[in-house]
Amino acid sequence: MSDTKDAERFAMIASVWNSRAKGLIAEMNLKIERANRQGVEIRMPFNPDFCLDEEGTMLHGGVLTALLDSAFGLANFLAIEDVQTMATLDLRVDYLRPASSRADVIVFAECYRQTRHIAFGSGKIWFDTGDCEEVARGSATFALTRGKGGLLDKMNIGGPGG
C-alpha cells in the first residue's frame, strides 16, 4: 500500500474512532494526536469522575488501564489491514508513579508484532506536563480473526482501504 493510501486509511480510521465513540471511549473524551502503522498517541483530558478523591488530586489506576486497553485496540486496527474481530486475551499494567496531576494524560500504544492469529501490543502513559515521566506501562495480547467486514465496516464507514 502506498504512503498516500496509508495516510488516507489512517485518517479515516481516526475520524471514525473519534466521531463514532460510544460508552467508555466517549466518556474519556479521547483525541487522537498521531496515528500510523508505528503506533498511536491519544490525549485524555482531566476528568474528576475518574479520580480517587473528591478533591480530584489523583486518578484511579483503573482509568490508566482502560486507556491503555483502548489505545491497543486502535493501534491494532491501524497496524493490521484485514483485522475482522479482535478479543483481548490478557492485559498487564505496571503503575510506575502515582497519577497525581490534573494535566492531560497522553497514551502511546503500538502493535509491535502480529501473526495470523495473535497481535502483541505495548504502551505507556505520561502526563502532558513537560517532564514526560512515565506514569504507567502496559502490554497486551489479542486474538485476531482476519477477513472482510471488520468492526470498522460495521460502523458504516467501509470505503476504499477500510
Partner: peptide, 20 residues
C-alpha cells in the same frame, strides 16, 4: 451505557472489567 467498549456488540470495555 458508559461501560461499553465494543460499539457494535455493546460489550463491556476490558478496562471497565479490570477497573471493577
Amino acid at each position: 451505557q458508559r461501560h461499553i467498549g465494543n460499539p457494535v456488540l455493546d460489550t463491556y470495555h476490558g478496562g471497565i472489567i479490570a477497573s471493577f
